[in-house]
Amino acid sequence: MGLESRFGDNILTTVADKFINWGRKNSLWPLTFGTACCGIELMSTIASRYDISRFGAEVIRFSPRQADLLVVAGRIVIKMGPVLKKIYDQMLEPKWVMALGACATSGGVFDTYGVIQGIDQFIPVDIYVPGCPPRPEDILNGLLKLQKKIERDTVLYRER
């Protein structure tokens, strides 16, 4: 690379998208919206045994204004819907949503009037993690898949 040879070891050239996405994907600050047993698995994922900080997502923020990743862990009933919608709307861009487990994805076994049959009916979801509840390994796998997705993002123009 021409520029780097001129400036020595102090300068590294790269593409802006790549550099920014690298930073974003490795410092996801999750907001955990745990409403059911998936929330327990999520706690286990965050704790030292599975240690979500290996993937840079250990800074749990309970304020939507400081979070990048909304993790919806559990069933969302019709009375919780407006709350979740408001929290999602309060988050700043760029933001991502993970639907954790069968209930957040599709309503799961709660096939009834009171439970929303999938949160993607009212907020956009980036990644779905299957399981009832998913094991911590599944959650970490979902996080890695989400990081892959963030890698493909463009900074000046977002697809969604």
């Binding site: 019709i78 819907g81 407006p82 096939d111 009037y113 049959q117 009916q121 009212f122």
Partner: peptide, 13 residues
Amino acid sequence: PLKGRGERSRFDY
């Protein structure tokens, strides 16, 4: 009924 009445998926402020 278990389904078909009372469902919601739109939440306006």
